[in-house]
């Protein structure tokens, strides 16, 4: 045990990483490459032959309005989710900053939805947002207001989904930004007091710059997360009404596994998603390395 030979010492690191690398190659890297490959073929799940068709699938996709619709929906959903989550999380974190009992209770409550299955969250909110029997409309009626159509109208469905995802994740980001706030030394605020800094300049000149590394990371995580949305769509709207809530991942799933099982098209849409996520990831690591550099 003590005297692993010279050879043993050389082989040891490879032996230790081998299982992990194998798993990642088989179940992440290969499928990714396979997806890219399939996006250049005409393959369908129900047809055995695979022919190379070049960029045909991409031309086809970008020529279809339902794909553009899915892409547009995804962006709409992402922008709304990210902005609402980020602003609320920052606001909540600053508001709940002091370590009092009530603040810690609020933070704990805010965080709760994060550890619960998104599926269940989607189901409860479908029930709350039910047009006829849901609690939200009943409350609106009690206040003398007309009920909303929530998930049943093309105008409100997407926003309703944003509300649900906001509710699910805002607590998580609040807690992350809150803990970033804790790392700011109090002396800085004491110095700012001596400099007679106002509340707003204190936030924008001191607080926000100090937490900006974590804030940027939150932004990127939020964005990537919002591109992956599936559960709520599948459970709450099924992409409808009409195609109002068709997003990219749902489009990929439906194209591959429903109807004509056009795997090749789904893969091409997947490559588009990969491209978007890759771009965001590159940004993420650029910021991460900057952050490490600063410390």
């Amino acid at each position: 045990m003590q005297d692993t030979g010279k050879l043993g010492r050389k082989v040891l690191p490879y032996a230790l990483v081998l299982p992990a690398i194998l798993f990642l190659l088989i179940f992440t890297i290969y499928p990714l490459l396979d997806m890219v490959y399939m996006s250049f073929t005409d393959w369908k799940l129900v047809q055995p032959a695979k022919n190379f068709v070049g960029l045909h699938n991409y031309r086809y996709l970008f020529g279809r309005s339902d794909f553009w619709n899915a892409l547009g929906n995804t962006f709409y959903y992402s922008v709304l989710t990210v902005i609402s989550q980020f602003c609320a999380a920052t606001l909540f974190a600053v508001w709940l900053r002091k370590n009092t009992r009530i603040n810690s209770l609020v933070r704990t409550a805010l965080f709760t939805p994060h550890i619960v299955a998104l599926l269940s969250v989607a189901m409860v909110w479908s029930w709350l947002m039910n047009e006829d029997k849901g609690l939200l409309n009943m409350l609106l009626n009690l206040l003398g207001l007309p009920g909303l159509r929530w998930l049943n109208s093309a105008e409100t469905a997407m926003t309703s989904l944003v509300i649900v995802s906001w509710w699910k994740s805002v607590g998580y980001y609040t807690v992350i930004i809150f803990s970033a706030l804790q790392t700011i030394p109090t002396e800085i605020y004491e110095a700012a007091d001596l400099d007679n800094a106002g509340r707003f300049s204190r936030f924008f000149r001191i607080t926000f710059p100090m937490i900006s590394p974590q804030a940027f990371l939150c932004l990127i995580t939020m964005t990537i997360g919002s591109f992956k949305v599936f559960e709520t769509i599948r459970v709450m709207t099924g992409g409808g009404p009409g195609k109002a809530t068709y997003v990219l991942v749902y489009y990929i799933y439906m194209t591959a596994f429903q109807g004509q099982f056009k795997v090749c098209l789904a893969c091409a849409a997947g490559v588009v998603l990969l491209f978007i996520v890759g771009l965001l990831t590159a940004l993420y690591f650029m910021l991460l390395s900057r952050k490490v550099h600063y410390q």
Binding site: L32, M38, I224, K228, Y253, V263, G270, L274, Y284
Partner: peptide, 12 residues
């Protein structure tokens, strides 16, 4: 791999 979402690999 850390950044690849499962939504991209499920088909393969």
């Amino acid at each position: 791999s850390f950044m690849v979402p499962t939504q991209l690999t499920f088909i393969s």
